[in-house]
């Protein structure tokens, strides 16, 4: 349960940024490992790539792209918040970042299936 003192949009934006950041930190080493297979063992890479054709893996990629986009646009909002003059529209901007992340990741997903 989310504690009552945290149930407001900007705290959820904070949570999303943290969770997406952690997920990306876990994912990136794996990502580079797979990319490195292109040099070390191309057959294993091919095997892996055929595995990524599965729908479930596609869905997981969708989630991953969403998190990446959410972290990117949310990060832009935070940079603007800290380096540009204060804007009182933070909730709108946070919602806009999530909307953009949905747009980007859904576009990616639709062109992947």
């Amino acid at each position: 349960m989310i504690s009552p003192h945290r149930s407001h949009p900007l705290w959820f934006a904070f949570l999303l940024h943290r969770v997406s950041g952690l997920a990306l930190a876990l994912f990136l080493p794996l990502h580079f490992y797979v990319l490195a297979m292109a040099l070390t063992s191309p057959e294993a890479l091919d095997g892996f790539l055929s595995w990524t054709d599965m729908t479930i893996v596609k869905l997981a990629e969708y989630g991953l792209v969403f998190l990446l986009a959410a972290h990117f646009f949310g990060g832009l909002r935070l940079l603007a918040l800290e380096f540009l003059p204060w804007s009182p529209r933070q909730k709108t901007l946070a919602a806009g970042a999530v909307a953009l992340a949905f747009f980007v990741s859904t576009t990616f997903f639709l062109s992947a299936v």
């Binding site: 003192h5 945290r6 407001h8 900007l10 904070f14 918040l81 800290e82 204060w86």
Partner: peptide, 15 residues
């Protein structure tokens, strides 16, 4: 962390 709990609850609506 700019999560804004403070601004959410400040009774004098400070930010």
């Amino acid at each position: 962390h700019s999560m804004g709990n403070c601004a959410q609850f400040c009774p004098n609506e400070l930010n």
